[in-house]
């Protein structure tokens, strides 16, 4: 039998944490996105010709949403599990009649929900700067949700792995940010020299951005099917990793 009460309280607790810091949770992504729009979209973008028939200001919208989504999902989920581990209050979760599936559903579900809301807010913010059109709204939501879930799961893994604050920061800072910036958030990978195009294909973010951008403008760097498959593969890898962590008690139980 599933312990729904436990999922509910973990989810609520994590959402409440967000609620308590509502202003910074929402203001900072909205502000940074607005800055990107002003600098890249308006100032620089006005000198850049349209890419594959899409104006530059519009072209960067999906990438910008992905940028926030990825960083927010990882930050929320990693902190959500790292903090109780750090203070020791995780004892309660371990001593409760609750399975790893329920723990993940609670923590990752809350982090993903929060990123999803932020994604929507950024989308709305974007409409103040550009005239947005979404060719495939349902697919857009599918990509949005899948990205939120898989990267929250990834953040959860980082939160378990990290045993100090430095490690908690290091992966988002040194790996995720470069991957997102080099993942075609602000350009089409077709604009790169052939060699770097090939290198870029090893960057998972390329597939996310490409698929997400397709749902808006029907332009893509890699095929939509490939994008979807890559996200699902990433999700599976994260799930298996978390499963292994809970099974072995890696950095959770001594």
């Amino acid at each position: 039998m599933i312990n729904f009460q436990a999922i509910k309280v973990i989810f609520k607790y994590e959402m409440l944490r967000t609620w308590n810091t509502l202003f910074q949770s929402i203001a900072s992504p909205v502000l940074s996105t607005s800055l990107y729009f002003i600098v890249f979209g308006s100032a620089i973008g006005s000198r850049i010709p349209s890419i594959e028939g899409v104006s530059y200001g519009l072209f960067i919208v999906p990438g910008l949403i992905m940028l926030s989504l990825l960083t927010q999902s990882i930050a929320n989920a990693s902190f959500g599990i790292f903090f109780p581990k750090f203070t020791g209050s995780i004892y309660e979760v371990h001593s409760a009649p609750i399975s790893f599936f329920e723990i993940i559903t609670g923590y990752v579900g809350a982090a993903a929900t929060k990123s999803f809301i932020i994604g929507l807010i950024i989308l709305i913010t974007a409409t103040f700067f550009v005239e947005l059109r979404i060719a495939h709204p349902v697919w857009m939501l599918v990509f949005l949700v899948l990205t939120c879930i898989s990267f929250s799961l990834f953040g959860f893994i980082i939160g378990i792995w990290a045993n100090d604050f430095e490690k908690l920061q290091i992966i988002p800072l040194l790996i995720i940010t470069p991957l997102v910036f080099l993942g075609g958030s602000f350009y089409s990978i077709n604009m790169l020299p052939p060699f770097w195009q090939t290198v870029t294909l090893f960057n998972p973010v390329v597939y996310l951005v490409s698929g997400f951008r397709w749902s808006f403008f029907e332009v893509h760097d890699v095929s939509v099917g490939t994008s979807l498959a890559m996200i699902l593969i990433f999700l599976m890898i994260c799930l298996l990793t978390v499963g292994w962590m809970f099974k072995t008690g890696y950095r959770l139980k001594q």
């Binding site: 009460q5 436990a6 607790y13 903090f83 020791g88």
Partner: peptide, 30 residues
């Protein structure tokens, strides 16, 4: 089983009421 651990830092911003409701829920009780 209920466990009272040695002293530890609880989430400092939680209220007493919220933290005990959280604990109860975690153990599957309505």
């Amino acid at each position: 089983i209920g466990l009272v651990p040695q002293e530890l830092t609880l989430g400092a911003f939680d209220t007493v009421w919220n933290t005990i409701r959280f604990s109860r829920g975690l153990f599957g009780k309505k």
